[in-house]
């Protein structure tokens, strides 16, 4: 169970169907790549867990699951393992839960190099440590070439919500301020560039990171924070539309206030995309009451991952459309939810 063990029982360089067969080869794969890295407490088929926070009166259990598919598997700023841990941690954190344990399930396409798998698993260990969660149980399956795109990972997460915490979009009121923890659309733009088929190159990297630290800071500074979302697929536009619809308010964004890197804008200009639709993996949008906005921003800026926090808009009386934006040019436009897949345009 030593990661640096010089002697390996794994034969060859890549995963084969034998590693999914249930026999010794599978045991070797699990031991050398997964168990060695995740170091579970015991080798039972279930994790047996206790936590003091759960025993407190009024505490609630939070439980979430998410599947991760991405091409390419490794990209500037992270890999599918980083995504799998941060995505589930952030889903828990955005709901006000303290993330505690994750499960991780791997569907591996035969031919996957052991080295790649080791790097991805190492990313998961690193991100889990950063977020303070344990990967407590897991599973692997190997499928024939063509049945999966390299590697799919599903993570489920369990966390605990302290008594008195109640983050829900329904609680957003007119006048509440929408905050984000940092720059937007880095992840989406990075993946578009990293895919290579559009042949653009940039220095941007995915913003993928755990946000539970940022979220705890916000909740400490703004005890009446209303609701938060991890603005992943569909970008800020989709997250805000969903929240506004649920809350029965409209949201007015201020284009001039949106933190978007010049390079990300560049990718969007070239491909005719809207940065508000691009995915984030480390962007949190939080609604707080006006009088707590300043302290929430200060608290975010003081923790890693929140340095570029800023206010981007506010909730207003429900209008005909959920989300509008004052353009930097002085006009106004609707910010709709992304329709289907975002396709680059030429015209």
């Amino acid at each position: 169970m030593n990661m640096a063990a010089p002697i390996t029982r794994l034969r060859g360089e890549t995963v084969t169907l034998a590693h999914g067969g249930g026999g010794r080869a599978m045991r070797d794969l699990i031991d050398e790549i997964f168990v060695a890295a995740f170091r579970p407490d015991a080798m039972e088929d279930q994790a047996r867990l206790t936590h003091a926070a759960l025993a407190k009166p009024g505490a609630r259990l939070a439980f979430t699951t998410d599947s991760f598919v991405v091409t390419p598997l490794e990209f500037p700023g992270g890999d599918i393992g980083t995504l799998a841990v941060c995505g589930t941690v952030n889903d828990l954190a955005a709901g006000g839960a303290e993330p505690l344990w994750l499960s991780a399930s791997f569907i591996i396409e035969e031919g996957m190099p052991f080295a790649t798998l080791r790097r991805i698993v190492a990313s998961m260990v690193r991100e889990a440590a950063a977020a303070g969660v344990r990967i407590a149980t897991g599973d692997t399956k190997v499928v024939e070439r063509g049945s999966a795109d390299g590697l799919f990972i599903t993570t489920s997460g369990v966390g605990v919500i302290r008594a008195g915490r109640d983050l829900r979009a329904e609680r957003i009121r007119e006048g509440d301020v929408a905050l984000v923890n940092g720059v937007l659309a880095d992840h989406g733009a990075t993946i578009l560039a990293a895919r290579g088929d559009l042949m653009v190159s940039t220095d941007i990297a995915s913003d993928c990171r755990p946000l539970n630290g940022v979220m705890e800071a916000v909740l400490a500074a703004a005890p009446n924070a209303r609701a938060a979302r991890d603005a992943t697929r569909g970008g800020l536009a989709s997250a805000l539309n969903e929240m506004a619809e649920t809350a029965g308010v409209s949201v007015e964004l201020d284009e001039a206030a949106l933190p978007i890197r010049a390079e990300v804008k560049g990718v969007c200009e070239i491909l005719g995309l809207d940065p508000l639709d691009l995915a984030n993996e480390g962007a949190l949008v939080v609604f707080v009451p006006t009088d707590e906005a300043e302290s929430a921003l200060a608290a975010m800026r003081a923790v890693p991952g929140g340095e570029d926090a800023c206010a981007v808009g506010r909730a207003v009386t429900r209008g005909p459309v959920p989300v509008t934006m004052r353009t930097a040019f002085g006009g106004a436009r609707i910010v709709d939810m992304l329709v289907g897949e975002q396709l680059p345009r030429i015209c």
Binding site: G319, V321, I334, C347
Partner: peptide
């Protein structure tokens, strides 16, 4: 197409607002 007159109206314009 997102630049088609109707889609542009839908996405950015006042048309959807007026209709709602």
């Amino acid at each position: 197409s997102s630049e088609g007159a109707c889609a542009a109206y839908w996405t950015y314009g006042g048309a959807r607002a007026a209709q709602m």
